[in-house]
Design a protein around this nucleic acid. Sequence first.
DNA 1: TTATTTATTTATAATCGTTATAATTAGTTT
DNA 2: AAACTAATTATAACGATTATAAATAAATAA
Lengths: 148, 148
Amino acid sequence: MSELHLKNALDTLKKTGVRITPQRHAILEYLIESMSHPTADDIYKALEHRFPNMSVATVYNNLRVFREAGLVRELTYGDNASRFDFVTSKHYHIICESCGKIVDFHYPGLDEVEHLAAHVTGFKVNSHRLEVYGICPECAKKENQTEE
Amino acid sequence: MSELHLKNALDTLKKTGVRITPQRHAILEYLIESMSHPTADDIYKALEHRFPNMSVATVYNNLRVFREAGLVRELTYGDNASRFDFVTSKHYHIICESCGKIVDFHYPGLDEVEHLAAHVTGFKVNSHRLEVYGICPECAKKENQTEE
DNA sequence: TTATTTATTTATAATCGTTATAATTAGTTT
DNA sequence: AAACTAATTATAACGATTATAAATAAATAA
Ligand SMILES: [Mn+2]
Ligand SMILES: [Mn+2]
Ligand SMILES: [Zn+2]
Ligand SMILES: [Zn+2]
């Protein structure tokens, strides 16, 4: 499953003339296998034992390469560090306001919102961003325990 | 109209024991009357002729005070500076990917998405964030003119 | 009113994520 | 192998924001 994703991603990169370096391979592999939404620094820390000399700039550079190749989506959050999501199926995110955890969920596209927005504003619509915020089950449990 | 908004906002602040300083008054006034989504620096620049000694930290401090009082919403965009929106009616934003313009539009709440997300993830849902991205009419016109 | 307390502002330094730069290294092509 | 080019590294710079501490202004007490 994840091997196939990795193989396809490497093929995509090769096709656009991007060299497959050990660092690139490792970053992609980590993104796919971690199944999470790591920051650049998460990735850097996860790989530093295998690449003791790797620069954090390399992580950022390659995440940009992957993004431009359409392999990775960058999730931005104001002040906080961006998180990166290997692109598989289209999905949305729900985010815990207590611990920051990000969980995927699927929902049929919000075409109607895009159409209405285009209609009332005259914009040519390209995309939308939707996130749901709340408290994850684990944090909710903790809160109940601590509560008076 | 905007005078009433300002008056209500000042009342809200007074009720929570926040002093109404000339700087606070001016920042609030600007937020309400500009009818736009300025950055902290936009506000700072707009008021520097009236308050030549005002610090940019004062703008940030007060925007935080306003946000905590529920008067202002902060719109965050990754690397770029936050934009601030005086809270009136609930609405969404459509953002031009070419010039950065932000335009309001109204849409009935997306309760269904929140419910589904809560159901499939077990989260306690508090809110959501939706933005539509595209090209504004002005930028679209420019692009067509430049095109081959 | 004057003195005292407390909130706010100012000036400035620090922080943090990210990007730019330049030198070095590694991969590719001839 | 030599030459060329892409990628990595080390490090400095950047920009938005926050922290700090001193100065000032507002509110309250005397
Ligand atoms: Mn995801
Ligand atoms: Mn708005
Ligand atoms: Zn949580
Ligand atoms: Zn535009």
